[in-house]
Protein backbone atom coordinates (compact mmCIF):
# COMPACT_ATOMS: atom_id res chain seq x y z
CA UNK A 1 0.00 0.00 0.00
CA UNK A 2 2.67 2.43 1.08
CA UNK A 3 4.93 1.60 -1.84
CA UNK A 4 2.02 1.81 -4.25
CA UNK A 5 1.31 5.38 -3.31
CA UNK A 6 4.96 6.24 -3.61
CA UNK A 7 5.32 4.86 -7.11
CA UNK A 8 1.99 6.17 -8.31
CA UNK A 9 2.90 9.73 -7.39
CA UNK A 10 6.24 9.28 -9.11
CA UNK A 11 4.68 8.23 -12.40
CA UNK A 12 2.14 11.03 -12.36
CA UNK A 13 4.99 13.47 -11.90
CA UNK A 14 7.13 12.09 -14.72
CA UNK A 15 4.13 11.87 -17.05
CA UNK A 16 3.23 15.50 -16.50
CA UNK A 17 6.80 16.53 -17.16
CA UNK A 18 7.04 14.78 -20.54
CA UNK A 19 3.64 15.87 -21.80
CA UNK A 20 4.42 19.51 -21.21
CA UNK A 21 7.56 19.37 -23.32
CA UNK A 22 6.26 17.99 -26.63
CA UNK A 23 4.51 21.17 -27.78
CA UNK A 24 7.25 23.74 -27.58
CA UNK A 25 10.74 24.13 -28.96
CA UNK A 26 13.48 23.19 -26.57
CA UNK A 27 16.72 25.15 -26.53
CA UNK A 28 19.43 23.23 -24.71
CA UNK A 29 22.09 25.26 -22.89
CA UNK A 30 24.86 22.89 -21.81
CA UNK A 31 25.74 24.92 -18.69
CA UNK A 32 23.89 25.77 -15.48
CA UNK A 33 21.25 28.47 -15.11
CA UNK A 34 22.83 31.79 -14.24
CA UNK A 35 26.16 31.09 -15.95
CA UNK A 36 27.66 33.25 -18.70
CA UNK A 37 26.35 31.15 -21.60
CA UNK A 38 22.95 30.89 -19.98
CA UNK A 39 22.55 34.64 -19.51
CA UNK A 40 23.31 35.31 -23.18
CA UNK A 41 21.13 32.40 -24.32
CA UNK A 42 18.15 33.71 -22.39
CA UNK A 43 18.35 37.12 -23.99
CA UNK A 44 18.94 35.53 -27.41
CA UNK A 45 15.89 33.32 -26.90
CA UNK A 46 13.59 36.35 -26.54
CA UNK A 47 14.40 37.65 -30.02
CA UNK A 48 14.60 34.17 -31.51
CA UNK A 49 11.18 33.07 -30.29
CA UNK A 50 9.67 36.40 -31.41
CA UNK A 51 11.09 35.92 -34.92
CA UNK A 52 9.83 32.34 -35.09
CA UNK A 53 6.57 33.11 -33.29
CA UNK A 54 7.00 29.97 -31.20
CA UNK A 55 7.26 29.23 -27.52
CA UNK A 56 10.78 28.20 -26.61
CA UNK A 57 11.82 26.59 -23.35
CA UNK A 58 15.41 26.81 -22.26
CA UNK A 59 16.70 23.60 -20.77
CA UNK A 60 19.95 23.70 -18.83
CA UNK A 61 21.78 20.39 -19.01
CA UNK A 62 25.05 20.98 -17.21
CA UNK A 63 28.02 18.77 -16.50
CA UNK A 64 31.29 17.49 -17.92
CA UNK A 65 32.28 20.85 -19.46
CA UNK A 66 29.08 21.06 -21.45
CA UNK A 67 29.48 17.74 -23.24
CA UNK A 68 26.41 16.18 -21.59
CA UNK A 69 24.17 18.94 -22.92
CA UNK A 70 25.78 18.84 -26.37
CA UNK A 71 25.30 15.06 -26.45
CA UNK A 72 21.62 15.54 -25.59
CA UNK A 73 21.26 17.80 -28.63
CA UNK A 74 23.11 15.37 -30.90
CA UNK A 75 20.86 12.53 -29.78
CA UNK A 76 17.57 14.42 -30.11
CA UNK A 77 15.39 13.83 -33.17
CA UNK A 78 16.07 16.20 -36.06
CA UNK A 79 12.56 17.64 -36.27
CA UNK A 80 13.58 21.18 -35.48
CA UNK A 81 12.02 20.98 -32.01
CA UNK A 82 15.32 20.61 -30.19
CA UNK A 83 18.21 22.99 -30.76
CA UNK A 84 21.35 23.70 -28.80
CA UNK A 85 22.86 27.06 -27.88
CA UNK A 86 26.42 25.86 -27.58
CA UNK A 87 29.66 27.77 -26.91
CA UNK A 88 33.08 26.90 -28.27
CA UNK A 89 34.12 24.39 -25.58
CA UNK A 90 31.75 21.47 -26.11
CA UNK A 91 31.83 21.89 -29.91
CA UNK A 92 35.40 22.67 -30.88
CA UNK A 93 37.55 21.65 -27.88
CA UNK A 94 36.13 18.87 -25.72
CA UNK A 95 35.82 16.25 -28.50
CA UNK A 96 39.62 16.26 -28.80
CA UNK A 97 40.12 16.10 -25.02
CA UNK A 98 37.88 13.20 -24.14
CA UNK A 99 35.57 10.55 -25.51
CA UNK A 100 32.34 12.34 -26.31
CA UNK A 101 29.14 10.69 -27.48
CA UNK A 102 29.16 13.01 -30.50
CA UNK A 103 31.52 14.63 -33.00
CA UNK A 104 31.35 17.51 -35.46
CA UNK A 105 29.24 15.43 -37.86
CA UNK A 106 26.52 14.97 -35.24
CA UNK A 107 25.23 18.48 -35.80
CA UNK A 108 23.65 20.68 -38.42
CA UNK A 109 25.00 24.18 -38.06
CA UNK A 110 22.44 26.98 -38.06
CA UNK A 111 24.26 30.15 -37.14
CA UNK A 112 26.97 31.77 -35.08
CA UNK A 113 25.81 34.52 -32.73
CA UNK A 114 28.83 35.87 -30.89
CA UNK A 115 32.59 36.04 -31.11
CA UNK A 116 34.55 37.72 -28.35
CA UNK A 117 38.33 38.11 -28.62
CA UNK A 118 40.43 37.35 -25.54
CA UNK A 119 43.20 39.36 -23.90
CA UNK A 120 46.50 38.46 -22.26
CA UNK A 121 46.12 39.71 -18.68
CA UNK A 122 48.45 40.30 -15.75
CA UNK A 123 47.82 41.45 -12.19
CA UNK A 124 47.46 45.23 -11.88
CA UNK A 125 50.09 45.13 -9.16
CA UNK A 126 52.69 43.48 -11.40
CA UNK A 127 56.06 45.19 -11.93
CA UNK A 128 56.05 44.25 -15.61
CA UNK A 129 54.47 46.33 -18.35
CA UNK A 130 54.95 44.46 -21.60
CA UNK A 131 54.81 40.99 -23.09
CA UNK A 132 58.54 40.88 -23.84
CA UNK A 133 59.38 41.00 -20.11
CA UNK A 134 57.32 37.89 -19.46
CA UNK A 135 58.91 36.15 -22.45
CA UNK A 136 62.33 36.89 -20.95
CA UNK A 137 61.26 35.55 -17.57
CA UNK A 138 59.82 32.48 -19.29
CA UNK A 139 63.12 31.85 -21.06
CA UNK A 140 65.23 32.41 -17.91
CA UNK A 141 63.06 30.65 -15.35
CA UNK A 142 59.33 30.05 -15.77
CA UNK A 143 55.95 31.76 -15.94
CA UNK A 144 52.91 30.41 -14.12
CA UNK A 145 49.59 30.84 -15.87
CA UNK A 146 46.12 30.00 -14.70
CA UNK A 147 43.00 28.88 -16.50
CA UNK A 148 39.38 28.22 -15.73
CA UNK A 149 39.97 24.52 -16.36
CA UNK A 150 41.89 22.26 -18.72
CA UNK A 151 40.92 22.69 -22.36
CA UNK A 152 39.27 26.06 -21.91
CA UNK A 153 40.18 28.93 -24.22
CA UNK A 154 42.20 30.64 -21.46
CA UNK A 155 44.27 27.46 -21.28
CA UNK A 156 44.55 26.83 -25.02
CA UNK A 157 45.49 30.40 -25.92
CA UNK A 158 48.14 30.57 -23.20
CA UNK A 159 49.53 27.13 -24.07
CA UNK A 160 49.82 28.20 -27.72
CA UNK A 161 51.55 31.43 -26.68
CA UNK A 162 54.01 29.60 -24.42
CA UNK A 163 54.94 27.26 -27.28
CA UNK A 164 55.20 30.07 -29.82
CA UNK A 165 57.35 32.22 -27.53
CA UNK A 166 59.46 29.32 -26.28
CA UNK A 167 58.69 29.94 -22.61
CA UNK A 168 58.97 27.52 -19.72
CA UNK A 169 55.50 27.55 -18.30
CA UNK A 170 53.41 25.94 -15.57
CA UNK A 171 49.66 25.64 -16.06
CA UNK A 172 47.44 25.82 -12.96
CA UNK A 173 43.80 24.95 -13.70
CA UNK A 174 41.17 26.48 -11.42
CA UNK A 175 37.50 25.82 -10.85
CA UNK A 176 36.27 28.81 -12.82
CA UNK A 177 37.49 32.32 -13.53
CA UNK A 178 36.63 33.80 -10.12
CA UNK A 179 38.85 31.49 -8.13
CA UNK A 180 41.66 32.01 -10.65
CA UNK A 181 41.36 35.77 -10.25
CA UNK A 182 41.75 35.33 -6.49
CA UNK A 183 45.00 33.48 -7.20
CA UNK A 184 46.11 36.25 -9.57
CA UNK A 185 45.47 38.90 -6.89
CA UNK A 186 47.48 36.81 -4.43
CA UNK A 187 50.38 36.44 -6.86
CA UNK A 188 50.14 32.69 -7.34
CA UNK A 189 49.72 33.03 -11.11
CA UNK A 190 51.48 35.51 -13.40
CA UNK A 191 49.30 35.49 -16.51
CA UNK A 192 45.74 34.72 -17.50
CA UNK A 193 43.83 34.93 -20.75
CA UNK A 194 40.20 36.01 -20.85
CA UNK A 195 37.64 38.39 -22.31
CA UNK A 196 37.16 42.13 -21.78
CA UNK A 197 34.43 41.38 -19.21
CA UNK A 198 36.99 39.71 -16.99
CA UNK A 199 39.51 42.46 -17.68
CA UNK A 200 37.01 45.14 -16.62
CA UNK A 201 35.80 43.27 -13.55
CA UNK A 202 39.05 42.49 -11.81
CA UNK A 203 42.20 44.25 -10.79
CA UNK A 204 44.11 43.24 -13.92
CA UNK A 205 45.67 44.98 -16.89
CA UNK A 206 45.80 43.78 -20.49
CA UNK A 207 49.14 43.31 -22.26
CA UNK A 208 47.82 42.27 -25.68
CA UNK A 209 44.73 41.07 -27.50
CA UNK A 210 44.47 37.81 -29.46
CA UNK A 211 42.65 39.34 -32.43
CA UNK A 212 43.56 40.21 -36.05
CA UNK A 213 43.25 43.95 -35.49
CA UNK A 214 43.22 46.28 -32.49
CA UNK A 215 39.77 46.63 -30.95
CA UNK A 216 37.83 49.86 -31.33
CA UNK A 217 37.07 49.96 -27.61
CA UNK A 218 40.72 49.37 -26.65
CA UNK A 219 42.88 51.17 -29.22
CA UNK A 220 45.97 51.18 -26.99
CA UNK A 221 46.20 47.44 -26.53
CA UNK A 222 48.44 45.86 -29.17
CA UNK A 223 47.55 42.64 -30.98
CA UNK A 224 49.66 39.55 -30.46
CA UNK A 225 50.55 39.66 -34.18
CA UNK A 226 52.07 43.13 -33.77
CA UNK A 227 54.29 41.69 -31.05
CA UNK A 228 55.43 38.90 -33.36
CA UNK A 229 53.14 36.08 -32.31
CA UNK A 230 50.62 35.13 -34.97
CA UNK A 231 47.86 34.02 -32.59
CA UNK A 232 44.13 34.68 -32.73
CA UNK A 233 41.67 33.35 -30.17
CA UNK A 234 38.10 34.19 -29.34
CA UNK A 235 35.23 32.64 -27.44
CA UNK A 236 32.09 32.19 -29.51
CA UNK A 237 28.61 30.77 -29.33
CA UNK A 238 26.21 29.45 -31.92
CA UNK A 239 23.07 27.55 -32.63
CA UNK A 240 23.14 23.92 -33.72
CA UNK A 241 20.59 21.18 -34.37
CA UNK A 242 20.86 17.40 -34.47
CA UNK A 243 22.10 16.36 -37.92
CA UNK A 244 19.44 15.66 -40.59
CA UNK A 245 17.46 18.88 -40.39
CA UNK A 246 15.59 19.65 -43.60
CA UNK A 247 17.00 22.52 -45.68
CA UNK A 248 13.92 24.74 -45.66
CA UNK A 249 13.68 24.48 -41.89
CA UNK A 250 17.38 25.20 -41.52
CA UNK A 251 17.23 28.42 -43.51
CA UNK A 252 14.08 29.55 -41.68
CA UNK A 253 15.89 29.01 -38.38
CA UNK A 254 18.96 30.83 -39.69
CA UNK A 255 16.82 33.83 -40.69
CA UNK A 256 15.21 33.93 -37.26
CA UNK A 257 18.66 33.68 -35.69
CA UNK A 258 19.89 36.62 -37.73
CA UNK A 259 16.89 38.65 -36.57
CA UNK A 260 17.55 37.65 -32.94
CA UNK A 261 21.19 38.77 -33.16
CA UNK A 262 19.97 42.14 -34.50
CA UNK A 263 17.33 42.52 -31.79
CA UNK A 264 17.81 45.53 -29.50
CA UNK A 265 17.84 43.54 -26.26
CA UNK A 266 20.61 41.28 -27.57
CA UNK A 267 22.65 44.23 -28.82
CA UNK A 268 22.28 45.94 -25.44
CA UNK A 269 23.35 42.88 -23.49
CA UNK A 270 26.33 42.48 -25.80
CA UNK A 271 27.37 46.08 -25.19
CA UNK A 272 26.95 45.66 -21.42
CA UNK A 273 28.97 42.49 -21.23
CA UNK A 274 31.59 43.39 -23.87
CA UNK A 275 30.46 40.46 -25.95
CA UNK A 276 31.34 40.67 -29.63
CA UNK A 277 28.42 40.06 -31.98
CA UNK A 278 29.09 37.90 -34.98
CA UNK A 279 26.49 36.41 -37.26
CA UNK A 280 27.55 33.63 -39.58
CA UNK A 281 25.04 31.65 -41.67
CA UNK A 282 24.88 27.84 -41.85
CA UNK A 283 27.73 27.18 -44.34
CA UNK A 284 30.12 29.79 -42.95
CA UNK A 285 29.48 28.70 -39.37
CA UNK A 286 30.10 25.03 -40.16
CA UNK A 287 33.35 25.81 -41.99
CA UNK A 288 34.45 28.02 -39.09
CA UNK A 289 33.70 25.40 -36.42
CA UNK A 290 35.60 22.73 -38.35
CA UNK A 291 38.72 24.83 -38.86
CA UNK A 292 38.60 26.14 -35.29
CA UNK A 293 38.33 22.61 -33.90
CA UNK A 294 41.34 21.55 -35.93
CA UNK A 295 43.51 24.41 -34.64
CA UNK A 296 42.52 23.67 -31.04
CA UNK A 297 43.19 19.94 -31.44
CA UNK A 298 46.71 20.70 -32.67
CA UNK A 299 47.45 22.96 -29.67
CA UNK A 300 46.11 20.39 -27.23
CA UNK A 301 48.24 17.73 -28.87
CA UNK A 302 51.35 19.93 -28.56
CA UNK A 303 50.51 20.42 -24.89
CA UNK A 304 50.25 16.64 -24.48
CA UNK A 305 46.59 16.72 -23.54
CA UNK A 306 44.82 14.88 -26.35
CA UNK A 307 43.84 11.31 -25.87
Amino acid sequence: MRTKITFASLFVMLGAATAAQSQTMELVVPFGAGGGSDTVARVFERGFSAALDRTIVIRNIAGASGTIGAAAVAQASADGNTLGYIPIGPLAIQPSLRDTAYDLDSFDYICQTTSTPVFLLQSAGSDKSEVAEWVTQGADSRVVYGSSGPGTIPHIAMAAFATEADMNSVHLPFDGTGVAMNAMAGGEIDLFVDTATVMESYDVTALAVFSAERLEAYPDIPTMAELGYDLEFSVWQGLVAPTGLDEAQKSALADACSAAVDATAFQELAAQTNTGLMYRGPEDFEAFVRSNAEVNAQILQDAGLTQ
Partner: peptide, 14 residues
Protein backbone atom coordinates in the same frame (compact mmCIF):
# COMPACT_ATOMS: atom_id res chain seq x y z
CA UNK B 1 40.62 17.24 -18.54
CA UNK B 2 40.58 13.52 -19.28
CA UNK B 3 37.65 11.38 -18.15
CA UNK B 4 38.51 8.88 -15.41
CA UNK B 5 36.74 6.09 -13.49
CA UNK B 6 33.79 6.46 -15.84
CA UNK B 7 33.80 2.89 -17.18
CA UNK B 8 33.44 4.40 -20.62
CA UNK B 9 30.08 6.00 -19.90
CA UNK B 10 29.27 9.51 -20.99
CA UNK B 11 27.15 10.12 -17.92
CA UNK B 12 29.82 9.45 -15.30
CA UNK B 13 32.24 11.84 -17.02
CA UNK B 14 30.35 14.61 -15.24
Amino acid sequence: GAARFTFGTQFLSA
